Amino acid sequence: MTRSAPARALLRLLAAALLLTAAACSSPPAPAPAPVPVSTRPGDLDLPAETRALLADAERALVRECMARQGFAFFYDSADVDELRAEAVAQQRELTLDDVSRARREGFGPAPGTPAPPDSPAELQERTYLTGLSPQRRAAWEKALMGPPEQQRIKVAVPGVGTMEHPTAGCFAEARTALFGDYAAWARADTFVHARFRPVDEEVGRSPAYKEATARWSSCVRARGHAFATPDEARARAGTLPRERAVPLAVAAAECDRQVGRSKTHRSLYEQATRHWTELHAREAADFRRLNADAVARLRASPTAR
């Protein structure tokens, strides 16, 4: 094994959080949603980039200290706030398909199958380090990091997804306990919050208002010579075209979106569906906010503990 899959996966988990999806039953929202209270807006469940960077770097530093006590090295790159901001914007792209200026600059965005970015400096360092260890030491390194295979695990059952397991032994578990205090509550809350996207999207997709807005969009692009039922179909087609043809298609799609109010409708319904999800999972949402806020407060009060 020349690369630790668990370590690499967890490093990305720290930087970007879990991008899980879930399938849950919920009632379709009203076509004209009421204003969403500030306390339940979608952004309240998305930590600011600066907060995510602070928590990720603190956790990685704790992991490194734990591994050092056991005679092992652990490598990580400091979180890039600008990269995290860009990632957050990309995750909201589906809500802003009416951004005509962006369509002119970027088309529909990265094409499906775009190669993953190259390994980071820390990943390259880790690969070299692990290659230099004997098989026995490499196994001991992974056990120190993730705990033994027979350990008891925190199991979080997410409706429509299955059970997500978190280690209770090893340096990652130790770091999360030190950082968040109630590690089991944090694991459950974090898993649920980052698994909310599919139930929210499915509730929006069932809405008559969303279907009607999408149908209006389809009629608009058809009048411009493009026969697509949904923006996904247009994006898929654009992925097969050269840029000089893909960008005009994306611009036409965005202009029609703005003209018929499809993304505006989508954003309103998305807020309402997120509020509904938060009401169904009030405990997890509250724990997510509280435990992360408490961890940040402790870090800022005691910077030497990072």
Results as ranks from 00 to 15, higher is better:
7 A>C: 04
23 A>L: 02
24 A>V: 05
27 S>F: 01
27 S>Y: 00
30 A>K: 07
31 P>S: 11
33 P>C: 00
33 P>L: 00
35 P>R: 08
41 R>W: 10
42 P>M: 10
45 L>Q: 06
46 D>M: 08
48 P>V: 03
54 L>I: 05
58 A>M: 06
60 R>P: 02
61 A>V: 01
65 E>D: 14
70 Q>P: 08
84 L>N: 04
89 V>F: 07
90 A>M: 09
92 Q>C: 02
95 L>F: 08
102 R>M: 03
111 A>I: 05
113 G>F: 09
119 D>R: 07
125 Q>L: 10
127 R>Q: 15
127 R>Y: 05
134 S>R: 01
135 P>E: 14
140 A>Q: 13
151 Q>P: 11
162 G>E: 15
163 T>W: 14
165 E>D: 12
165 E>W: 04
167 P>C: 01
168 T>R: 09
169 A>I: 07
171 C>L: 10
176 R>C: 07
183 Y>P: 03
188 R>G: 03
190 D>Q: 01
190 D>K: 00
193 V>A: 10
195 A>F: 13
197 F>S: 07
197 F>Y: 06
199 P>L: 05
207 S>Q: 04
214 T>A: 14
216 R>C: 01
216 R>H: 07
217 W>N: 06
221 V>I: 15
226 H>K: 05
232 D>R: 02
234 A>E: 10
235 R>A: 15
239 G>R: 00
241 L>Q: 09
242 P>F: 12
247 V>N: 11
248 P>L: 13
255 E>G: 04
257 D>T: 01
258 R>V: 04
261 G>N: 05
266 H>Q: 11
268 S>N: 06
277 W>N: 05
279 E>D: 15
284 E>R: 13
294 D>E: 15
295 A>Y: 09
298 R>M: 04
298 R>P: 04
298 R>A: 11
299 L>W: 10
301 A>T: 13
304 T>F: 07
306 R>M: 09
